[in-house]
Design a protein around this nucleic acid. Structure first.
Lengths: 345, 345
DNA sequence: CTGTTAGCGCGTTCAC
DNA sequence: GTGAACGCGCTAACAG
């Protein structure tokens, strides 16, 4: 059976409060070193494990952090950005990284456990039942904002993942998708390309992150004084544009979109990077095998999640809320080459 | 502030115990329907949320399930199969799916939350502090077994993920990797190939799942009375074997290995499926873009996780432990063709 | 330096 | 059909 604090106290010949003082981990209590050592020894011998529920009830805190993964694994289509499967693909690509980042940071900071709430239309109140000291909310951009709004006045600190805009009083971390889009585009410009198309904006155009990637593209194009090509989201149209000499390089919304570009071009006998230079976004697992090595924008999902945990823990220690935008960086492989190399063919 | 049960009782004009009876969800208590309705209404109006810690302390149960993800997100190399990065890749490929499966099943079954314990050498005892009613353990094959062994006599039900062999008294779910390997191999045999190589077994040969995939290959080859080719894990060797007519088809250990095969062959001017038929394993995100559509064995990771949750919940309801091996199935795309089509070139 | 005492908020008896 | 009283295991005061 489970051994409790009174049994440890009895076996060690002290009172239960002394045991509590020793095992609470808090320093500053006045306890003889010898007594403390004996208590610890007895506790180990007896296999004593403090009961979390009782401790939580007494202290009002749990040491645990809550994670709301609204979209993760939702097999029901309508819980994902209005049924857009691209949203699902995006989430699935990163859920592993998110969990990895959360897990790493939690271990590093000594957070005993993460409480993951399965998504689905449960009342926002259910997150306030004292199971956690703070909340990380990583839900999709649309439903997410509703949840954040509902928890605006929640009596615990909240950090929003995947979003820049939060109600006041909350912290937020996001990847700077716009900077990433600009980064990719500038890279192609520096290679000498000026007829650069943005591939994407199709059914997934409602996804804010993708729109920001496209903004980044436009921003870089405008800054370079180069005409912006209208977004393409169709292999056939892309092939026509390439053949007509209107496009020599493509910035794809995602690595999967980049893979689709490669495939479409190859069916037309066109190849990357010989005929078209290509840059993706995300650096998904396997990106090194797309087009013989896809040059792409690394998307720091795990870092974002880890940063979120750090922010939350700092808030629990009394620091004020803050915002953070993580800069992506370019991973140069072999799918983009200089315009002159392309012309030389 | 947080509203407690006494305040609801006061506002509804009843005693706290009546409120408890109404809101506990348990039927069978004798409470006037009208009273019950009034209590429920008042509770909603006041935004009452039962305190989890107090309820857990009183009832001894939490309704929560624990998940031990020993390997997930471990950035320290030595926590992953002795530093083998292939292990890391494997885990990362599926962590999102695992979380998705867990999440889906938890929502479906009304489990309020999953408690995820960050990996790292914490005492097995720390999982027994009453935070959860049962445990899902999804750790890598090597370290995992040690943890399972240590928790052999734990006073709560345990379901092991990713493993077939568990201490008695525990439940287990795994994907049938061997059946998957046999499935892929039989498919190639049925296409008329008999010179089939297993690509893999390199640095990751310590991974039990991969060994089982290879066993499946050998099993199918032997059953067909066809000589087993020795495993290849090197692009150059593979190219030589193909050129020498020793290999017309390849079963790759993973989809990433399949992608590497495609890339190696393509550098030698060989293509899939025209020169070599190829079947992968996993059906990772993006598999449809490998070799113009990779034929592969679908790996039901999410289903496995969901099944684990179901098994655990059934155990909590008193059912005895059980074992389960999920059959993978083949996803036919375009990377494998009949031997005659290959010869016709 | 150590022990005694009084709840934390809830669910469950048992009287009424 | 309803309410008062008790205790789950632990920790924070305070007393010694």
């Amino acid at each position: 059976m489970k051994v409790k604090i009174t049994e440890v106290a009895l076996a060690a010949g002290v009172s239960s409060s002394t045991v509590s003082k020793v095992l609470s981990g808090r320093t500053g209590y006045a306890v003889h070193a010898a007594t403390a050592e004996r208590v610890r020894q007895v506790a180990v011998d007896l296999g004593y494990v403090p009961d979390a529920a009782a401790r939580n009830l007494r202290t009002g805190r749990t040491g645990q952090l809550g994670v709301v993964l609204e979209a993760v694994g939702s097999s029901e289509p309508d819980s994902l950005l209005g049924g857009i499967t691209a949203g699902s693909a995006v989430r699935r690509t990163f859920d592993g990284a998110i969990m990895a980042g959360l897990n790493d940071a939690a271990r590093e900071l000594g957070v005993p456990a993460l409480v993951v709430y399965p998504g689905g239309g449960k009342s926002p109140l259910s997150y306030l039942d004292g199971r956690v000291d703070g909340l990380l909310i990583s839900c999709d951009p649309m439903r997410g904002h509703g949840l954040l709004e509902a928890l605006k006045d929640a009596p615990l600190p909240i950090v929003a993942l995947w979003t820049e805009r939060v109600p006041s009083g909350m912290s937020a971390v996001d990847v700077d998708h716009q900077a990433g889009g600009a980064l990719a585009t500038r890279y192609l410009l520096e290679l000498g390309h000026h007829r650069i198309a943005y591939y994407g904006g199709g059914e997934a155009s409602g996804v804010e992150h993708f729109r920001r990637r496209e903004f980044g593209y436009r921003e870089a194009m405008l800054a370079a004084g180069v005409p912006v090509h209208r977004a393409i989201h169709d292999g056939t149209l892309l092939i026509e544009a390439v053949r007509a000499g209107q496009v020599s390089a493509v910035f794809a919304e995602t690595d999967l979109a980049a893979a689709a570009v490669v495939q479409a071009l190859s069916r037309a006998g066109l190849s990357v990077p010989d005929d078209v230079s290509l840059v993706g976004f995300d650096d998904i697992l396997g990106a090194e095998y797309i087009a013989g090595g896809l040059t792409t924008v690394y998307h720091p999902a795990a870092e974002m999640a880890a940063e979120g945990v750090h922010m939350l823990v700092r808030r629990l220690q009394g620091e004020p809320p803050s915002q953070l935008l993580l800069p992506p960086h370019l991973i140069v492989r072999r799918s983009a080459q200089t315009r002159s190399a392309t012309l030389a063919r």
